[in-house]
Simulated assay, not measured.
Amino acid sequence: MDDATSQQGSEAEVAARRSRFGALPEPVRVEDMVEERPASSHDPDRTAYNQDEWLVRYCL
């Protein structure tokens, strides 16, 4: 293999490498990295409790 052929091969490799790795990727926002999901599904019975109901049941 002569120098001209190896030089062309290396130039092609350099161009391919530069096209693939020549620029940094776009920055990712922190908001896009976090996924928020509720830990459990909504339970209507859990919030249906009235804190003052025991007053009516036991004190009146």
Rank of each mutant, 00 (worst) to 15 (best):
Q8H: 05
S41Q: 12
E36H: 12
R37D: 05
S6C: 08
E11I: 01
P25Q: 02
A12S: 07
S6W: 05
E31S: 06
S19T: 13
R20W: 03
S40A: 14
F21Y: 15
D45S: 09
R17L: 12
H42A: 15
R18N: 12
H42W: 13
D43S: 08
A15W: 01
S19G: 11
S19I: 04
Q7I: 11
G9T: 11
R18D: 12
P27I: 04
E36Y: 12
V30G: 00
G22S: 03
E26C: 05
A39K: 15
R17N: 14
A23W: 04
V14L: 13
A23K: 14
V30E: 06
S40C: 07
S6A: 15
E13I: 02
D32A: 07
A16M: 06
P27D: 08
R18Q: 12
V28T: 13
R18P: 00
V30P: 00
E35P: 00
D32Q: 06
V30C: 01
R20S: 08
E31M: 01
P27R: 09
R37G: 04
S19P: 05
A23D: 12
D45K: 10
S19Q: 15
V14T: 09
V14A: 13
D45Y: 13
R17Q: 13
R18A: 11
A39Y: 04
G22E: 06
V34T: 01
M33G: 01
S41T: 11
P38Y: 07
E13A: 09
V14D: 09
